[in-house]
């Protein structure tokens, strides 16, 4: 700490300026709008209106919880398998995971529409094979699929990076001491990958709970999430105050979730030390 020279501080200055301008200032503006009315007076009225939005909050949290769990279930084996490969193979595989992210997020979601529609790719293949079509688009499942598809890499990468750094000697030591495969996994590998899982959970949950585009395109505008509601307050209702209040509550919710998650992760590290 005391080693931070003037040079180091100068090097940090651009980011400091950046975060004050584009992180702290906007946050303060959100707080300001959330607690004021049109004439700039302090008020709690914006929050009093939130009761009618409870359905949206509940739906958003539920959808993103499911998406997060699905991501975790899908991502963990993938991350594990990648981490166990030869280093050069690892690099290629990680790049393959990131590949879809090179394409624009909106484009990818848009193409899911064409895939899932009743006259879309999947259903036209099904009908060619003589099978009955499946209705997929504009259902909650489609929205969750969109979330999983878009945010899966954010779950794989942190878990992978933790697993890749895991000392092989620890596994060997456990094996030497007579642990079977299951015990090695639950006692060594899983606890050590907890920090990766924790950051993966946050990195998937936070963007999915606040997403607004996926539900509009894949849910047919019939399963509005918090993000959609906020967007509408700013874009069509011009009600910045209510929009800010909803954003504020969303931020608090996310903070609470992250705090709980961090508590878990921290406990685990404590467990490791013991």
């Amino acid at each position: 700490m005391n080693k931070s020279s003037i040079g180091a501080r100068l090097a940090a200055a651009p980011y400091l300026v950046w975060s004050v301008l584009f992180v702290v200032a906007p946050l303060l503006m959100v707080v300001y709008y959330a607690f004021t009315d049109d004439s700039g007076n302090f008020t709690f009225l914006n929050f009093a209106q939130l009761g009618s939005y409870s359905d949206v909050f509940v739906r958003s949290i539920w959808f993103s919880l499911i998406a997060t769990v699905v991501c975790l279930v899908l991502a963990y084996p993938v991350a594990y398998l990648i981490a166990m490969r030869h280093e050069r193979t690892q690099r290629v595989l990680v790049m393959l995971i990131m590949l879809p992210m090179w394409m624009n997020f909106l484009l990818r979601t848009y193409s899911w529409m064409a895939i899932l529609e009743d006259t879309g790719v999947i259903n036209s293949i099904l009908s060619k094979l003589g099978l009955s079509p499946v209705h997929m688009i504009n259902t909650p499942g489609a929205v969750i699929l969109g979330m999983v598809y878009n945010y899966l890499p954010y779950m794989i990468l942190p878990i992978y990076s933790v697993l890749a750094k895991l000392e092989r000697s620890m596994i060997e030591a456990a094996q030497d001491l007579g642990a079977n495969r299951w015990q090695v996994f639950t006692r060594i590998i899983l606890p050590h990958s907890m920090p990766g899982i924790a950051s993966g959970l946050t990195m998937v949950f936070v963007p999915s709970v606040s997403t607004f585009y996926i539900s509009q395109k894949l849910g047919g505008g019939k399963f509005d999430l918090i993000g959609d509601t906020i967007e509408r307050q700013f874009q069509t209702s011009y009600n910045y105050h209510l929009g800010a209040a909803i954003s504020f509550v969303l931020m608090v919710l996310i903070l609470v979730c992250m705090a709980a998650l961090n508590k878990f992760a921290a406990d685990d590290e404590g467990g490791l030390l013991i």
Binding site: S52, Y53, D55, V56, V58, R59, I61, W62, L65, G221, K222, F223, D224, D228, T229, R232, T236, S237, Y238, N239
Partner: peptide, 29 residues
């Protein structure tokens, strides 16, 4: 009027499709 319209629109867009099972699911979680 604009505010009233968007409020009504909000109600239309957010309402209706939630069922009780989501609430139960969340409570269980």
């Amino acid at each position: 009027t604009l505010e009233y319209m968007t409020q009504k629109w909000n109600e239309l867009k957010i309402g209706g499709s939630n069922n009780i099972s989501i609430y139960i699911g969340l409570v269980v979680v």
